[in-house]
Design a protein around this nucleic acid. Structure first.
Lengths: 218, 218
DNA sequence: GAAATAACGTTGCATTTGCAACAAAGGAGA
DNA sequence: TCTCCTTTGTTGCAAATGCAACGTTATTTC
């Protein structure tokens, strides 16, 4: 249990909550840890869950399959990271599968108590809810940003929109991006080589300059 | 004030909260209404706000402009609908502009008290927070679904993925969709005529049949 | 019921894309 | 330094896309 706490305190859900309040929170919400072997399914597509998950150790992956059965990796989940918080709060069937990619322990935190309040909510627990709000809101913003890029029609537009956002965020030239070419293409949902071709054109036209991950507008 | 309550009780944030608790909530969080004339800006792109908005009457629009200055309408907001809840909770600069498209009253509800709890949170207020969680989580799911469609490369794939989701949701043939062609094309971020062409192909190939908004897989 | 309007389908064409296969550049390790 | 391997850039080509213009079919309005 001690060990669990030491990981949870790095989890964004427990931001600015004293470790001494952890037992009270877990007592209030419930919460159990479970061990998975590499390859085990943690959450299956279509399943509903009333508990969000936190990886304690090991590794898991979020996987999505489309209607044709093609699998793609949505995200890696590392220790202290939260997953399934949206499906748990919305009581919606999971659009993704979560699978352990290494032996791991996962902590499950029930959220229904938050929706069935009968009496005043203690401070430490309210803080956790506030953190949960922040997490959800942050993901919301992130998803919206991604949709902005994806809703553009051409690779060129997607690149320009994404890069000017990074440019703006960095506050000027030069700026770096957190992806290599392969990952950037996957993020923008375009073909890597076609993207590379378009980057080449932008450089030739004098709109953009770049070297590896360092870009600058000209 | 009476009138405000009668609208708020239809707002998802106040689900299963007794109207008699409204004053206490507003007292706890603060909250003010403001009047806008048609054309007034309610929230500007890049602005931060610590208050979410609820339209009391009239109409407003969420507008997004990309880096080239092209405007597009993201959503209409009608009475009792909530907006800006994510930017308020995440304390992030707004990616969109909100503008009044008719004379309207908007109610602003501060969210910082939720993040600065010092003592136990009263029941009615915890319920509001739970509702807020649900709203955010629901939007999250919705956004994720949209990204699933948008991340596919071809119009055909987007159509098939979207339509089979609707098919699944409806539980079989036939099923109807909530968009006309124009809106569906905008939702999937493709050209309407190209989409129409693709729908025609799917029908000719015997994969799909449709008449107006009624579709069925064959 | 006729005219007007909106929604939907069709098609030609220039452009863009994905795909595949390969070339070039950089880095890591022996 | 040389080799292996990863990352990035290049290119030919068939297919898909956006765009624009127009034809056709509902739907509304008077």
């Amino acid at each position: 249990m001690e060990k669990i706490f030491s990981i949870l305190k790095n989890c964004s859900l427990f931001d600015s909550i004293q470790e001494e309040d952890f037992p009270a929170i877990l007592d209030y919400l419930g919460g159990t840890a479970k061990h998975y072997r590499s390859g085990d399914i943690v959450l299956l597509t279509g399943e509903k869950t009333a508990r969000l998950g936190i990886v304690l150790n090991g590794q898991a992956q979020i996987i999505k399959e489309d209607s044709l059965g093609n699998r793609s990796i949505v995200a890696q989940i590392s220790p202290a990271e939260v997953f399934a918080e949206a499906v748990a709060c919305a009581a919606a069937p999971s659009p993704v599968t979560v699978v352990a990619t290494a032996d791991c322990q996962i902590f499950f935190l029930p959220v229904n108590p938050l929706f069935a309040v009968k009496e005043a909510v203690p401070v430490f627990c309210a803080k956790l809810v506030a953190n949960l709000l922040k997490v959800l809101a942050g993901k919301n913003i992130e998803l919206n940003r991604k949709i902005d890029y994806l809703s553009l029609r051409t690779t060129r537009e997607k690149l320009l929109e994404y890069l000017s956002a990074q440019h703006k965020r960095a506050g000027g030239n030069p700026f770096t991006i957190p992806f290599d070419r392969e990952q950037l293409a996957e993020y923008l949902c375009v073909d890597r080589s076609a993207m590379s071709r378009e980057l080449g054109r932008l450089k030739k036209e004098g709109i953009l300059d770049f070297k590896k991950n360092a870009f600058s507008f000209t």
